[in-house]
Structures are given as structure tokens and as C-alpha cells.
Amino acid sequence: MVDPLILILGIIVASLAVSMALSSSPITSALSLVGLMVALGAIYGVIGAHFVAALQVLVYAGAIMVLFIFSIMLLNMNESVPEVDFRNAKTWLTGALAGGAFYALFQGFKHFESFEGRPSVGEFTLERIKELGGNLEAVSGLLFSKYFFQFEVVSLLILVAIMAALTLAKRKVD
């Protein structure tokens, strides 16, 4: 039995995703994505992953999407993009392909769940997290011990990305 709250939030997430993909105005698309991030954060909160929920809202809705909307506003992208043409066979073909891919993915998950009797729940159950002292402690404990090297490599990658962006945006000095 699915928690009714998760079901409602799931419907909200799905409809916002549809609105994001089908909307003809860029700002509606971007704002749908913001709403989607917040609703996704709410789902994480309901299942007890408070840290992920807060980060989802803080990072995606609070920072990244602000920049999206900022650039849409700054460039004044008011002209609407062409709407999705439902009479075109290509649209339906793409939709069917994407739907089939998702169906295969879900079947794969189902298969994996029963794969060699492996439990679908990982090491970090709600009890284990409570034992560690909370979500934040569990995540940071892993991040600074087991995945420390990977964590540092990722931060280096981000630094490289910043430098690349700076180089691209830099004005040429005559």
C-alpha cells in the first residue's frame, strides 16, 4: 500500500513534468521544473530522507533554477517555442520509444528486486540511520571516509568546469 501523501505528491510531480515538457512558454517550463523540484523534495521528506529533501529544495529549487529563470528573464525569451504537434507521426513515435524505454527500465527494477534473493533495501534502513544519529551524519560519514577520494575528484571537476566557463565568457584583450 502506497502512502496516500506520496501518491498525491507523485501525481503533482508527474503533472508538473508534463507541463514542463509541453508548455510553449520558457518561463512556464522553468517554473514547472521549480515546482517539480519542491514536490520531489516533499516526497523525500515524507519517506524520511530529510537531508536529501532539504538539499533538493536548497540546491535545485533555491539556486540552480533561480539562475535558469534569471537568464530567461535577462534574455527576455518571450517568443514561444513551437508547441508539440500531436498530429505528427514523429511525435507519437518518439513518445512510444520513450515510454517503451521507461517500461523496460521499470521491469528491470522489478527483476533486480528479486535477483538472487537480494533485498531491495540497502544497508541504510531507517533504523540504521537513527543509530548513526541522522541522515546528515550518515551521508557525511560516508562522504568523508569511504568516498573521500571520489568527493575530492568531483570538487576538482567542478573547479575545472568553472575555469572552462570563465575562459569561454572572458572578453578578448586586444
Binding site: V34, V38, G41, H50, F51, A53, A54, L55, V57, L58, A61, G62, A63, V66, I69, F70, M73, G133, G134, N135, L136
Partner: peptide
């Protein structure tokens, strides 16, 4: 248990109404 991060997450949304 995430404490202040929750407050910050909601406070971060305050930029949207202005935009």
C-alpha cells in the same frame, strides 16, 4: 535532524516571488 538547513531551504525560495 537537519535543523537549520530546512529553514534555509524555505528561505531560499524567497527569491522567486520577486522575480
Amino acid at each position: 535532524n537537519i535543523g537549520i538547513l530546512a529553514a534555509l531551504a524555505f528561505a531560499g525560495l524567497e527569491v522567486y516571488p520577486i522575480m
